[in-house]
Structure formats: structure tokens, C-alpha cells
């Protein structure tokens, strides 16, 4: 141990000093790392499933899981159900974003509203959505509306909470500067409050996107007769573990893609912030 350190010290002394370089990976390095990482994971999965002797009901082989893609396509239940779930998710998210952003801006921006409405929003945010299931069934029955409602109730409060908080982080000195140039309340809102919350709006959407996905899955678990989550439940009842795993992977891939997209949006939205 100590021998290697001294040898390293000697070599660094003989060479010209290396410039200090921040430890970051290039774009290409990142891609290579990701691909190798995923490949190793798949291979390890296959080997463990084959060689460990764990029953395939618990851990199916990776190849069997991938095989489900073709099996489901052949049965004609892959694209149709994915499409239904995607539609419900997108409608739910669109409603959540459209409703929650103005709501959060309003409640966060007006102190008295924040006092009155804030606690209810937080209550809804911390409440496990599963608890709302029986209520939603009572309200709207077992249908698509129930699923959309679950997505909204999952994503909406998360978005509102982040935006409400963002409205409280507005720099008072900027408000003062705007006022010194005769800005009225409206102008302070549009020219100071709104732009300074834009990066947080992106953060809020990112939070909402993953929570909405949870809502979608819960909805499909309990209230659906179609959709990809429903197919997963059926597969589970039929002990088709490979199919369950396959759909799980689809969910994971979808949510990773969404979070990646929203992170990118977030970065774009806060380009003026110091690093």
C-alpha cells in the first residue's frame, strides 16, 4: 500500500504537473457506461436465474421476460393495452398540470389563501392515494374516469406543493427593485414572481410525473378491465411471472424516460441560474 503511494509520488514528480480537471464524464463516456451497465445487469440476471436454482416463478430468466414481448404481441394484448394506459396517463397529467400550476401560483402568492388552503393541499399530498380508492369507486364507479381521477389526485397535489413553496422563495430585493420602478402588483407577479418560479415549475412537473405514474398503476390495479396494469394483474393471477416482470420493466423504462425528459426541461428552464 505504502509502496505504491511512494511510487506514484515519484512518477508525478518526474512528469509535468497534470492540469486540474473536474471529474466529469463526456457525453460519449456516459453513453458507454450506461450501455455496459445495462448489459451487465441483463447478463447477471440471466445467469442468476439459470444457475442459482431459484424457481422460475420467483425469478424468471431474462430471456423469458423478453420473450413475453413477442408473446403478448402475438396475443394482441400489448399495443392496445399500452395505448389505453398511455392515453389515461396523458389526459390525467395534462389536467393535473393545467389545474395545479395556476392553483399553486395563486395559493402560494396570496398569504391569506396559503394560510387557509395550504393545509388541505398538504393533507392531500401526504395522504396515501390507496386510501382514496373506495371513495373514488363510490363517486365515479369502475371506469376510465376513476383512473384519470387517480392520476390527477396523485400528481396534482405534488405539483401544487412545489409551486406553493416556490412562490415563497421569491427574492424580496427583486420585488423592491420592481416596485421602485413603479411596478404594480400585477407587474410584480408577471415580471418577478412568475419568471423566478419557472425553474420550480419544471421541478414540480418532474415530481408530478412520477407520482402520476403511481396513481395510474393503482388505478389499473383496482378499477380497470383493460390497460397495461390490468394485464399485469391478470398475469400475476395466472402465475405468469415472466409477464409480470416484463410489464414491470415497461413501467420502469417509461418512468425513467419521463423523468429524464423533465430533468432536461428543468435544466432548460433554469439556464440563468448559477450552477
Amino acid at each position: 500500500m505504502s509502496a505504491t503511494t511512494t511510487r506514484e509520488a515519484e512518477t508525478t514528480r518526474s512528469r509535468p504537473p497534470a492540469p486540474v480537471r473536474p471529474r466529469t464524464f463526456s457525453r460519449r463516456q456516459k453513453i458507454v457506461i450506461t450501455v455496459v451497465n445495462l448489459a451487465l445487469f441483463c447478463v447477471a440476471w440471466e445467469l442468476v436465474a439459470r444457475l442459482s436454482g431459484v424457481p422460475s416463478l420467483l425469478v424468471p430468466t431474462f430471456s423469458a421476460v423478453v420473450g413475453e414481448f413477442f408473446a403478448m404481441r402475438q396475443e394482441g394484448i400489448l399495443w392496445a393495452n399500452l395505448w389505453i394506459s398511455l392515453q389515461i396517463y396523458l389526459v390525467g397529467m395534462a389536467l393535473s398540470i393545467l389545474a395545479a400550476i395556476p392553483f399553486g401560483l395563486l395559493v402560494g402568492g396570496i398569504k391569506i389563501l396559503d394560510r387557509i388552503v395550504g393545509p388541505y393541499v398538504w393533507a392531500l399530498y401526504t395522504l396515501p392515494r390507496l386510501i382514496l380508492m373506495p371513495l373514488i369507486l363510490l363517486w365515479v364507479g369502475i371506469n376510465d374516469t376513476a383512473r384519470v381521477l387517480l392520476v390527477v389526485l396523485s400528481a396534482g397535489p405534488a405539483i401544487i406543493v412545489v409551486i406553493m413553496d416556490a412562490m415563497k422563495t421569491i427574492e424580496p430585493s427583486l420585488v423592491r427593485a420592481a416596485r421602485s420602478f413603479c411596478a404594480g402588483r400585477r407587474q410584480v407577479f408577471t415580471h418577478v414572481a412568475l419568471p423566478s418560479t419557472v425553474p420550480y415549475i419544471a421541478t414540480a412537473v418532474r415530481m408530478g410525473v412520477s407520482r402520476g405514474l403511481i396513481g395510474l398503476f393503482i388505478g389499473e390495479l383496482f378499477t380497470a378491465a383493460d390497460g397495461i396494469g390490468y394485464v399485469m394483474v391478470l398475469a400475476g393471477r395466472q402465475f405468469n411471472s415472466a409477464r409480470v416482470y416484463f410489464i414491470l420493466l415497461v413501467f420502469v423504462a417509461f418512468s425513467v424516460a419521463l423523468v429524464g425528459l423533465t430533468q432536461w426541461l428543468e435544466k432548460k428552464a433554469s439556464i440563468w441560474r448559477s450552477a
Binding site: E171, S173, L174, A177, F181, A183, P195, S196, W272, R273
Partner: peptide, 28 residues
């Protein structure tokens, strides 16, 4: 008829130099 210069600059970080100089004119 009055303008203020602040100790902490109080520039809008999302505006460029040009945008910041423009700010007061926009508000008025």
C-alpha cells in the same frame, strides 16, 4: 422621476444585461 440603485444590485437573473436595462422602461 426617481430611480434607485441598490447595494445588492437587485438584477433580474433571468434577464440579460439588455433585458435588465429595459426593465424600468417596461414597468413604466
Amino acid at each position: 422621476e426617481r430611480s434607485v440603485v441598490f447595494q445588492d444590485y437587485a438584477l433580474m437573473p433571468w434577464r440579460t444585461v439588455e433585458g435588465n436595462v429595459r426593465f424600468g422602461l417596461e414597468m413604466q
